[in-house]
Write a protein that binds this DNA or RNA. Structure first.
Lengths: 197, 197, 197, 197
DNA sequence: AATGAATGAGGATTCATTCAT
DNA sequence: GATGAATGAATCCTCATTCAT
C-alpha cells in the first residue's frame, strides 16, 4: 500500500558491500565540513548530499543526529588524547592541539560550551562524555601550581572561555583570537597544530 | 430593531493606533521569554502566540527574525549604556550590569559571540552595531592600565570569553561561572544586577 | 536558517478567512472518500490533495490522524443518533440506518471492530467513545426479550459481526451481505437508508 | 604457516542448499510472529531480521508482500483441511479448529474478510483461493438442514461474521467473543483448538 | 492596523526493492 | 544461495511568509 516504486525505474549503481566503510567515512567528512559552515543543527539531508549518498545510508550508519555529531567530534577528541598520550607530552603542547581544534571546528566549540539553553540541542549526553575525555587529557598533565589548577572547575571554564573567544571568518582570525584569549588567561600555549602534523 | 446589528459583533480587538505600540512591546516581551525557553531559533509563531497577537502583527513590526532579536537585545544594551551613563559610574559597576545580562539571556550571549558560523543565524549585521555600543559603554570607563586595556581587541575578547563560560540550568549556575571567568581574567566585577535594581 | 522561501515565488490565491469553514468541510468530505477507497491509514497528504488544500491546512484543522478520522466518523454516528432520537423510532429503523452506514464507509466498519491488533492503529480512544454512542443509540430502543438483549455484550458483538460480513465491490453487494448477516442473526432490520432521506 | 588463512574467515553462514528450506521455514515462522505483534503491514525488513536472514533471502523466497502472507495463511488453512480430512470429522469439530485459528491470527482473520477496500492490501487474489479451500473443507461436512446450509453464501458469510466479532487483547478475550458469535448464529461449535492438539 | 488562514517548501524518517560481493 | 548496503520515493510534520478580510 505504501511504497511501491514505479517498477524498473532508473536505479543508480550499487557499489556493494565494500562501499560501506567508505561511505561512513565520507559521511563523517561531509558532516565535518557542513558543521563547520552551518553549525550542529545543519540538515542531515545536506550531509548525505555532500557525502554523495542517499538519505538512508546516513540513517543506516548513524541512528540519529547526535550519533553523527559524536562521530565527528570523536575524532577531534581522540587527537587531543593522542597528543596527551605521547611520551614527553606536557600541558603546553596538549593545549596547542586543543586550540587547533577549537579554531578548526565550530562543532567542537559547541561541544565545549554544551548546555547553552536549547540552542545546541544536538549532542546531549554524548557531549558530557566527550568533554570529560578532553578534561581528563588535560588534567593528566596539569602541573601543581598551574594557573588553572586552583578551583576544580577552573580548567574547563577556561577552555569554554577560549571557545567563546574564537570567532572570525578565517582560521587565522580564529587562531589569533584564541591565542589572545589564552594570553589574557595567563596560560602558556604551545604550537597550534593538529596532532601528528 | 430587527435590523440593528449587535455592535462589535465581529470586531477583532482593534483598539486603535495606540494598540500598535502596546503590541510591539508585547511582542518584545514575548520574544524575550520564548528565547529564554527555547533559544533564538524558536518559531516566530510561538512569539506571536505568546504575545497574544496575530502573525501579521509580528511581521508588521519586524521585517524578519533578526529584527525581533535585535529589538530584544536592544533593551539589554540600553541598560548597559544607562549604567555607563550614570554619574559616578565606573568599569567595575558597568561590568556587573553587563554580567547580569550575560547570565540572564541566551540571546544576549549569542550577540557577544557574534559571527560564529551560521549557528546563530539571527543577529547578522545588527549584531555588530549592538556589540559596538556595548564596547563603547565599557571603554568609556576603562582606566589607563586596566587589565583589558592592552591590545585593542582585548576588551571585547574578554567579554566574549565570559560569555563562553556562561552555561548551566539556573541563573545562579550561570552567575557563578561568569564570576569564575572574570576571576580567571583577573578582572574585578561589581554587583551582578540589572540596571536600576 | 531553515525555511527561507526563495522570495517572491509564485503564490496561489489566499481566499481569506471565509475559506476556513469551507476547507474544513472539504477536508472531511475528502477524507471520507479517501477512507472509502483506501482505509483509515491512507496518507494524510492524499486527503489534503483531494480536498484541494495545502498540507498545512489539514494540520491546522486536525491535530493528528485520529482527529480526522473522528471528524468523519462523527457524522456517521450522529446520523444514527438522530435516527434514534426521532419520535416513533424503533430498533428496526435504527438498525436500518446503522446498516446503511456500514455499507457506505469502510472507516465506519473499522470503528465497529476496533482493536484488531495494530491494524487499525488510527482511532484509538476516540473509537470507544464513538462506538459507545452507537451502542447507546441502539440500546435505547432495544425491547425486552429482543434477540440481542440477552448477554450484555451481544448487541455490539452482533454489530461487529455484521461489519465483518460486509464486503464487496459495490454498495449493493455490501448491502446484500449485510442483510444476509442480519437474517442469519435472526434480527429484523428496516429500510437500509441514511437518516433523513 | 604464515600464509595459512584462517578458514571460514569471512564465510557468511551458507550451509548449502538445505539451508534454503530452513530459511523459508524461518521466514514463515518469523512472519507469523511479526504479524501477530504488528499486523499485516509490518515492514518486511522486520520479518527478515526476526528470521535471522538477510533481506535478499526474503525476496528470493517470496516475490512480494502478499506471497509472505499467503505462505503464513497456508499453514492455517492446511490445518483446517487436515481436521476436515480426519476419519470421523464433523462440522462441529472442524468449526472448532477454524475458530481456533480465528482467535490466533490477525492475518487469518483478514483473510476471511477479504476484499474490504484497500485496507488489507496484502492477500489479493491469493486470498480467494485460500478462502475457497476453507469453504470446501467446511462444506464437505455440512449436513443437510444445517443452520448455514440455506443460501449458498450463508456459510462463508457466517465465517466472516465471526471473524468480525473477534477482537480483544488476549486470545481468551477473542475466544469468548468468537463463541458468543457462533451462539448468536445458533451454530454449535466443538472444542476450540489447533489441529492435532 | 489586526487577524488568522492558507500555502508550500524543507527537513526527518521509514521502507520496499535492487544488487555487488 | 546468502548477505546486507544503498537508493530514493513517500509520508509526516513544521514553519516562514503572504494576504483576504
Amino acid at each position: 500500500m505504501t511504497q511501491q516504486r514505479t517498477r524498473d525505474e532508473r536505479r543508480p549503481a550499487n557499489d556493494g558491500r565494500k562501499a560501506a566503510a567508505r561511505n561512513r567515512a565520507a559521511l563523517i567528512a561531509a558532516a565535518r565540513e557542513i558543521y563547520a559552515d552551518s553549525g550542529l543543527n545543519a540538515p542531515l539531508s545536506a550531509i548525505a548530499r555532500r557525502a554523495g549518498v542517499g538519505q538512508g545510508v546516513l540513517y543506516r550508519h548513524f541512528p540519529d543526529r547526535a550519533a553523527v555529531a559524536t562521530a565527528v567530534l570523536d575524532e577531534n577528541v581522540r587527537q587531543i588524547e593522542q597528543a596527551a598520550a605521547e611520551p614527553g607530552a606536557d600541558i603546553v603542547g596538549v593545549l596547542g592541539v586543543l586550540t587547533w581544534h577549537q579554531t578548526q571546528s565550530a562543532a567542537f566549540i559547541s561541544l565545549l560550551h554544551a548546555d547553552r539553553a536549547g540552542e545546541v540541542s544536538a549532542v546531549p549526553e554524548y557531549a558530557s562524555a566527550l568533554s570529560g575525555r578532553v578534561e581528563r587529557a588535560l588534567r593528566r598533565h596539569l602541573p601543581a601550581g598551574h594557573r588553572l589548577g586552583g578551583e576544580r572547575e577552573d580548567l574547563m571554564i577556561a577552555v569554554a572561555m577560549v571557545s567563546g573567544a574564537v570567532a572570525g571568518p578565517t582560521r587565522e582570525h580564529r587562531e589569533r583570537r584564541a591565542l589572545a584569549a589564552w594570553r589574557l588567561l595567563g596560560v602558556e600555549v604551545g604550537a597550534v597544530r593538529p596532532y601528528g602534523e
